[in-house]
């Protein structure tokens, strides 16, 4: 029999305790909210937001928090967390701040429970048993919501960057330039190569100047991608001239031992275009009119 009582004591009163808890949090809403906002400011969190904004958000979070304790459903809170993240991420609010304020709220509420039930340790224990899992779930929900929103934004930005695809430009008949800017990963290298090959065919290019001045770093993977691009272009009958290898990149390539003997390299874009013109049989000469034109304008 005692066992049965114990089970009842564990299960049955949880709901009652939670509703008592909710009532307590409802009664002390103003005071606890203020305490929480004060602790947030004290801990120098959410510095990107003004005091009033913090208080307004704190109120919403507080009400959502109490609602979750009351209904046990985190859906509304999830939606709110997403919405909140959407608003505060562009303002530079960090993950640690969001997690920090939710944990602060948990602490503030726990303290108030300690204070209320300090006379009865057994009751306090049971109240905490009911409160803690719910509180942890809330903290989890908010943090996950925030991180998910951030990841969504990062994915969106990656997509945007990818869509700013590398242009393949014709500078002269049969001469293309391909300025590569930014980090080259496998996916981009693939896209880039496909685009270049298509460009070679549609422009009937014979020489391509690939400028990598804007590529911050080159490792063996990227170098191999470049070699592959050069090889594939050769199969379409085009010569590739690689330009803009910085001293650091040149050192890296030599150190990691990438075989670049198949690559035709020239120092900068200008030199590359001049070399390409030579290969194509262009002879670009100055007419000496630059000075005259300048004089006309004056």
């Amino acid at each position: 029999m005692p066992q049965r009582i114990a089970v009842q004591a564990n299960v049955q009163p949880t709901a009652d305790l939670l509703s008592e808890l909710v009532a307590h949090l409802g009664q002390n809403r103003t005071q606890l909210r203020e305490e929480w906002a004060r602790r947030i400011t004290e801990s120098v969190l959410l510095t990107a937001m003004t005091k009033d904004e913090i208080f307004a958000e704190a109120t919403s979070v507080y009400d959502n928090y109490v609602e979750v304790l009351e209904t046990g459903s985190v859906e509304a809170l999830q939606a709110y967390a997403r919405n909140l993240s959407e608003r505060i991420i562009p303002r530079g609010v960090e993950t640690h701040e969001v997690v920090g304020i939710v944990l602060l709220l948990r602490d503030v509420l726990a303290r108030s429970l300690f204070k209320k039930y300090q006379a009865d340790f057994g009751l306090l224990n049971r109240v905490l048993d009911a409160y803690e899992p719910a509180a942890n779930r809330i903290a989890n929900t908010v943090a996950v919501g925030f991180v998910q929103e951030r990841e969504r934004i990062i994915r969106q930005q990656q997509e945007a960057i990818r869509e700013l695809s590398t242009p393949v430009l014709q500078v002269r008949e049969r001469l293309l330039i391909l300025p590569i800017i930014g980090i080259v990963d496998s996916q981009r290298a693939r896209q880039l190569t496909e685009q270049l090959l298509r460009g070679i065919r549609s422009n009937r290019a014979k020489v391509v100047v690939m400028d990598i001045t804007g590529v911050p770093s080159v490792d063996s993977t990227v170098a191999n991608h470049l070699v592959q691009t050069v090889e594939a272009s050769r199969l379409l009958g085009a010569t590739v001239i690689v330009t803009g290898l910085s001293p650091e990149i040149a050192q890296t390539l030599v150190t990691i031992g990438v075989d670049l003997t198949k690559m035709n390299t020239v120092g900068d874009l200008q030199g590359g275009i001049e070399e390409a013109e030579r290969l194509l049989g262009y002879d670009v000469t100055s007419t000496g009119r630059l000075a005259a034109a300048h004089g006309d304008r004056e």
Partner: peptide, 13 residues
């Protein structure tokens, strides 16, 4: 060798 398609060139490499 002439007329290698871009996709074929890419795959070969």
């Amino acid at each position: 060798l002439v007329g290698i398609q871009p996709e074929v060139a890419f795959t070969m490499v």
